[in-house]
Design a binder for these strands. Structure first.
Length: 506
RNA sequence: GGCCCGUUCGUCUAAGGGCUAGGACACCACCCUUUCACGGUGGUGAUACGAGUUCGAAUCUCGUACGGGCUACCA
């Protein structure tokens, strides 16, 4: 099928690549893949003040991690490129001029100072933010209020100008949003937005329409914050290319933080990631932690993001990417905003860790341990460890806490948990355990446990009284998987070594 | 202020005029477990409010309230 969807990005992660942005990309990707269509990524680098060095590469890295690379393009590739807006600069002017010629737009010569003055002069209690609209247009310096001669003179003198859309007086603009149904606006409440800036760059409003046309976009998904400017885009489509060619719009619900639209600050404040991957702002050196580094699997990340505002109508919650592609439908996206719940996000990750095979986790866990300074980890040991502890891990980083004692002998265990109840009988008991274990050539958890309990019975000691000390000896604390499973993986030499060492301390 | 969008357990949501409003996260209890978890079973908990349409409304309509978004030569 001929479906082409696109997503646009400002190379400023503060505005572009939090959860909401990622989800927009995800929905684009799922939709495109479902219909075997294309998914186009556009980079908006028009505003230099917002441009952050390295952000573009960062965005692509995030998409790559999540498995959401566009099907058609790298930044320069594809049949409808270039995809970086600054490289398309020359394309837009002629459409803006066309609109002026057709009477749908006009030149405006107002300086920033003029605009500021207007906003100040017309500001009232009832109207705290006056707009450059039909009621004010004739009071400003533009090709509508000025005579043709005056306009021509200013143009000839190369006075800086912008091109603004001329909003019709009193018209109802409506369109059908895939998620919300019919949405309509009265043009008298909308201002004359700038389409082409003084530097010759288009604003989003012009660029989005021209690009979607040139790139033959069939479906356009974006955040709900764009809904108020949708009528401008509909009008531009009507004037420039015809409403019948306009892509179908879907305005995605916002992802909310604890108060309002989810922001980077919310993440820092409440201790959860809002970006896919770590981002350090080169301007401020501020580090924002990502889902990847926090210990999320990309599969879980995609899964939790997809379910934030969408479901397939069944009670299924865990989906592979392939299942999502097969089952996703943009019509089923919920219209209300969704508050991000980090607890639930972690649950998704837990489910995915449980679902993942030991093999697929191996290299990730290996490098995680390495980062923490645990080197020389044997592959076969590690896979046994992962099998034993993976159900206990919510985040990948939990693997360290759940398994470091396999690789590092506990320096000083929780002696206080044992010492008060320690006595001669226990000392003798463990001496016998050592003797028994030294003769054990099988070294399996089951035999270790049965002989341990036999010795306890013979010595008339309750297993419970000596089980905890054994755990402290091997692990160092009151946690971890079954103590005999641990002993098995630790091996004979290490296990006996740890018991002997502990006996000298108790 | 104006315009737009939205509103079902604390949170994410299902139910598209007809069962006792279903599930998941979180929380609580019990079970399992001689550690801590996982797991299992059960429980608390919602249709914002008011009218209208209808035999029948979470569902359709209107109003109100609340929440959110937009209101730049940003996106």
């Amino acid at each position: 099928m001929d479906k082409r969807v696109r997503v646009r990005f400002a190379p400023s992660p503060t505005g572009g690549l939090h959860l909401g942005g990622m989800r927009t990309v995800l929905y684009n990707c799922l939709f495109a893949k479902k219909y075997d269509g294309d998914f186009v990524l556009r980079i908006e680098d028009t505003d230099q003040s917002r441009y952050v060095a390295g952000a573009e590469e960062y965005i692509f890295n995030c998409l790559k991690w999540a498995g959401l690379e566009p099907t058609e393009s790298s930044v320069h590739g594809g049949n409808y490129g270039p995809y970086r807006q600054s490289e398309r600069k020359g394309l837009y002017r002629k459409y803006a001029e066309q609109l002026v010629k057709d009477g749908h737009a006009y030149y405006a010569f107002d300086t920033p100072g003029d605009l500021e003055k207007m906003r100040h002069d017309f500001k009232t209690e009832q109207n705290p933010s006056p707009q450059y609209d039909g009621s004010i247009r004739m009071k400003m310096r533009n090709s509508v209020s000025l005579s043709a001669d005056e306009t021509k003179k200013l143009l000839d003198e190369n006075v800086r100008y912008v091109i603004r859309i001329k909003m019709p007086e009193h018209e109802t603009v409506s369109f059908t949003d895939i998620i919300r149904g019919e949405v309509s606006f009265d043009t008298s409440t909308i201002d004359d937005k700038v389409l082409l800036k003084a530097d010759g760059m288009p604003t989003y409003h012009l660029a989005v329409v021209v690009d979607d046309h040139l790139m033959k976009i069939s479906h356009a998904f974006r955040g709900e914050e764009w809904l108020p400017s949708a009528p401008i885009h509909v009008l531009l489509w009507k004037y420039l290319f015809g409403l019948n060619k306009m892509p179908q719009w879907a305005h995605l619900p916002l992802i909310l933080g604890p108060n309002g639209k989810l922001s980077k600050r919310d993440g820092a404040k409440y201790g959860f990631p809002v970006f896919a991957m770590n981002w350090s702002d080169p301007k401020t050196n501020e580090l924002t932690e990502g889902f990847k580094e926090k210990g999320f699997l990309p599969e879980a990340f995609i899964n939790l993001l997809a379910l934030l505002g969408w479901n397939d109508g069944t009670e299924q919650e865990i989906f592979t990417k392939e299942e999502l592609i097969g089952k996703f439908s943009i019509e089923r996206v919920h219209s209300g905003g969704a508050k991000f719940d980090y607890e639930k996000a972690k649950w998704f990750n837990h489910e995915w860790i449980k679902k993942s095979s030991v093999d697929s986790l191996q290299s990730t866990v290996m490098s995680l341990l390495l980062e923490k300074g645990i080197t020389a980890v044997d592959d076969s040991i590690l896979s046994k460890v992962i099998r034993l502890v993976k159900d206990r891990c919510t985040l990948l980083t939990d693997f360290y806490d759940q398994s470091y004692f396999f690789f590092i002998s506990p320096e000083k265990g929780d002696v206080d948990a044992v010492k008060p109840k320690w006595n001669e009988a226990k000392q003798l008991f463990f001496a016998e355990v050592i003797r028994n274990y030294e003769l054990n050539n099988d070294w399996k958890a089951i035999t270790l446990e049965s002989s341990f309990k036999e010795i306890a019975a013979v010595n008339q000691i309750k297993p419970g009284e000596v089980l905890l000390p054994l755990r402290i000896m091997l692990v160092g604390g009151k946690f971890g998987p079954g103590v005999f499973d641990i002993a098995e993986i630790l091996g004979k030499e290490e296990t006996l070594g740890r018991i002997k060492k502990a006996l000298t301390v108790f």
